[in-house]
Amino acid sequence: MQLVVGRIGRAHGIKGDVSVEVRTDEPELRLGPGAVLLTDPASAGPLTVQSGRVHSGRLLLRFEGVHDRNAAEALRNVMLIAEVDPDETPEDPDEYYDHQLIGLDVFLRDGTRVGELTEVVHLPYQDLLTVERPDGKEVLVPFVTEIVPEIDLAEQRVVITPPPGLIDPDEAEVASSREDAS
């Protein structure tokens, strides 16, 4: 199975380093020295990580065969893809790889089907689950325990307890009307 683990940003310095937008919870494993990464577009790779370091809060990588700023700049916006064993799981039982979650059915606690989980969006401060509703609309659900209390990989389901208005905007209006009436 292939997972996108990063996107190459700007060149840094003159020796071939590039900044990388990390898209994995385990950069030390997926983006460490010696890691061989496929690329999108495929013509840019594969790339082997020669070295890496953090500078001013950003991950900088140097790839074998990329020795100057021009070669590094040519890699800008290339997606980095790692080959991952589909049976591999994180060490912490409360953590999940994106590929384990994508495709799961999403339900409310009362059993009402909300839709299908189609993407995990990694933001700097919080992850979001993209849920595609049966009508084709997408809903972004904060991936926090209070809203996503249950993930059952064996049953291929996620249970959510969203606040009013997150799934159905009309619920937010009803909830605010009730509060106004009190």
Results as ranks from 00 to 15, higher is better:
G45V: 00
V22I: 15
N70D: 11
E171W: 06
N77A: 12
Y96L: 04
E91Y: 10
V139I: 09
V114I: 08
E28L: 10
E91N: 10
T161I: 12
E21Y: 07
V18E: 00
L166N: 11
A154P: 02
R30P: 06
L140A: 15
V131C: 07
V18D: 00
D25E: 12
I81T: 05
T89A: 15
L104C: 05
R133E: 06
V5C: 11
Y96K: 08
D170Y: 13
T48G: 04
T161M: 12
V78E: 02
F143A: 09
R62S: 05
S56F: 06
L129N: 09
E88Q: 09
D152K: 02
R23A: 11
R58E: 12
Y97H: 14
A11Y: 01
A175Y: 13
V114R: 01
A71V: 02
R109G: 10
R76I: 08
H12Y: 13
Y97P: 05
L29G: 08
T39W: 00
K137T: 13
L59M: 15
V120H: 04
V22S: 08
P46D: 05
L108E: 15
P86L: 02
P164R: 06
E138Q: 14
V84R: 14
A44T: 05
G16N: 00
P169R: 14
P33T: 07
E28S: 12
E21I: 10
H12D: 12
R53Q: 12
A11L: 04
G34M: 03
P162I: 02
A11P: 04
E132H: 07
A181G: 07
